[in-house]
């Protein structure tokens, strides 16, 4: 989805950096790692932006930064053009009604002592407000759960049903943007497809905007309107068209590692060699250089910047794959 150059994006991340320090003590200085390093992202209303990468690439940290659940070390978060980076506690409450999140693990994201009704009323109770009558039933209808579930406890539900509750809870205030942090990663593929279909339906009927975090490039290409590929805390490629041919060797490798449900296409799998380097000891140049098949000398010396390729697509690579 293209937006006019002057349109204000509903959610904008501007040069976000987040470092974590671990292992520090009284006498020892802790080691620090950069989970997210200089990530900028503009999410236009109605977009489904997919952030894809492997574990440790910083995509979940990015989701929490965007949600203002953790503070950035540098950079800004803007919602509808307003800088919300300095807001905390009660000042964030107006934002909470418009920006919501669905979490990965449907087993631990619901309090075991809350009934589904309690879970769905929690967004209102948390802000000290009263839910409009019939809201719980309306939310259950919206996510395709039977109204009789209202009195049930999470442990009486399957993983897919719990994730529907997680989605319903995020929709309680009719938000504008929903951050989806791997909402299907702990579900069976059959249930994943159900949940994705539900999210698509809600996107169509409620005009939602999604920031979709996932490790599954195939799923992101199917579901999203725009794709951001992250590797070790940095954006390596932005694809304005989800069906485009990947330009960054890492994106290409991710695609080459995805299995296709067709036994006749086996030969195409090219597994990526090696492991993700430790985020505590990043190589000086391109973070992907040690595993890259197209690596050149300058990749190890300096870091390629994110530069425009075709249309609104960008890639951070000295030697990108030919389109």
């Amino acid at each position: 989805m293209q937006m006019p150059a002057d349109a204000v994006p509903v959610l904008e991340l501007d040069g976000l950096v987040r470092t974590f320090t671990t292992g520090g003590g009284l006498l020892r200085k802790g080691r620090s790692m950069t989970a997210v390093s200089d990530v900028s992202l503009r999410v236009a209303a109605g977009d489904i932006v997919g952030v894809v990468g492997e574990s440790g690439c910083g995509k979940s940290t990015l989701a929490r930064l965007a949600m203002r659940l953790i503070d950035p070390s540098a950079g800004r978060v803007l919602f509808e053009g307003r800088d919300v980076t300095q807001d905390h506690g009660p000042r964030l409450r107006p934002l909470r009604k418009k920006l919501q999140m669905v979490f990965q693990d449907p087993y631990s994201s619901l309090d075991p002592r809350f009934t589904l009704r309690d879970c769905l009323l929690e967004p209102f109770a948390a802000l000290g407000e009263t839910a409009p009558p019939g809201r719980v039933e309306a939310l259950l209808d919206q996510v395709g759960l039977d109204r009789s579930f209202a009195g049930a406890y999470p442990h009486q539900l399957s993983g897919g049903q719990r994730q529907r509750v997680g989605i319903a809870r995020a929709l309680a205030y009719r938000p504008e943007v929903v951050v989806l942090d791997e909402p299907t990663a702990s579900l069976d593929v059959s249930i994943q497809a159900q949940i994705i279909a539900l999210l698509q339906e809600l996107h169509r009927t409620s005009g939602l905007t999604y920031l979709f975090i996932s490790h599954d490039l195939g799923l992101v290409r199917y579901f999203c309107t725009r794709i951001v590929v992250m590797y070790l805390g940095s954006v390596v490629e932005e694809m304005a068209d989800p069906d485009a041919v990947p330009r960054h060797p890492y994106t290409a490798a991710l695609m080459g590692s995805s299995f296709v449900p067709d036994p006749t296409e086996r030969a195409q799998i090219v597994p990526l060699e090696g492991e993700i380097p430790s985020p505590f000891a990043l190589p000086p140049g391109c973070p992907f250089a040690p595993r890259c098949a197209r690596v050149q000398d300058r990749c190890r010396a300096s870091r390629p910047a994110l530069t425009q390729t075709t249309g609104a697509s960008k890639v951070a690579c000295f030697n990108p794959v030919e389109a």
Binding site: M67, R93, M101, F103, S109, L110, E122, R169
Partner: peptide, 10 residues
């Protein structure tokens, strides 16, 4: 996660 979720709800 439900504690984090509650924070996300404000």
């Amino acid at each position: 996660t439900y504690v984090e979720a509650a924070r996300g709800l404000g």
